[in-house]
């Protein structure tokens, strides 16, 4: 879902960066506060960031005959909230932009917005909403991770459509075309990401009950 270097006009790059920067700054302050108040969650925070690292490095084949990668942000969003996840996602995007020429510095703001902000917000909302109405943590994290993943790709399609409106059908037409590229490829990957995140959540509930309860109310026992 990474928009490649130089593929957005300068004004869009600056605009998305202006939207993303405050969230990342706020998220950094949340992390500092979290580590001061609940230092026992430090390792879990690192592991959640590592999960984003792993998943966004895996380019997985999809039924459409093309490859894409999951985002891995749903877990951190469910556990720590979207602002903290924005920081973790930004670190990964920066790593890939600088070392892998995957994504880019000029498009960093836009990519942070889609992968590290929009997706995690959707994931967080779903996780809190579903656990709030009594769904099991497994079901809630599945929906959060899978639909957060899809949301990221929908936002990317929209960002590209805003920059490259279709000459005939305009921005909406272009959005439909970009979605047609991303969505069919991403749906099976989103399901994979959801299932994988359920495994991690199962392990966490078994081995890290202390940390999960320290993170309440961000995490509630199902």
């Amino acid at each position: 879902m990474h928009i490649m270097e130089g593929y957005l006009p300068l004004s869009h790059c600056l605009g998305w960066a202006a939207v993303s920067l405050p969230v990342v700054v706020y998220g950094s302050r949340r992390i500092i506060r979290l580590l001061n108040e609940k230092p026992e969650t430090k390792m879990l925070l690192a592991a959640s960031g590592a999960y984003v690292f792993v998943l966004s490095a895996l380019k997985i084949p999809s039924v459409t005959g093309s490859c894409s990668h999951p985002t891995g942000t749903g877990l951190a969003a469910g556990l720590f909230g979207p602002a903290v996840t924005a920081v973790l996602g930004t670190i990964v995007l920066l790593f890939q932009a600088l070392l892998l020429a995957h994504g880019g510095l000029s498009t960093l703001g836009a990519n942070v917005f889609s992968m590290a902000i929009a997706g995690p917000f959707v994931a967080y909302g779903l996780y809190r909403g579903l656990t709030g109405i009594g769904a099991s943590a497994a079901l809630a994290i599945f929906a959060a991770a899978a639909l957060g993943d899809l949301a990221t790709y929908c936002v990317t399609a929209l960002q590209l459509a805003l920059a490259f409106p279709d000459p005939v059908s305009g921005t909406l037409g272009a959005a439909a075309k970009f979605l047609a590229v991303f969505a069919p490829t991403q749906v099976p990957l989103a399901i994979s990401e959801g299932l994988l995140t359920v495994i991690v959540m199962n392990l966490l509930q078994r081995y890290s009950a202390d940390e999960l309860s320290a993170l309440k109310p961000a995490v509630r026992e199902a």
């Binding site: 093309s66 490859c67 894409s68 490829t185």
Partner: peptide, 8 residues
């Protein structure tokens, strides 16, 4: 099995 990013 190209990357979807390239397709975009």
């Amino acid at each position: 099995f190209n990357g979807a990013d390239n397709e975009a």
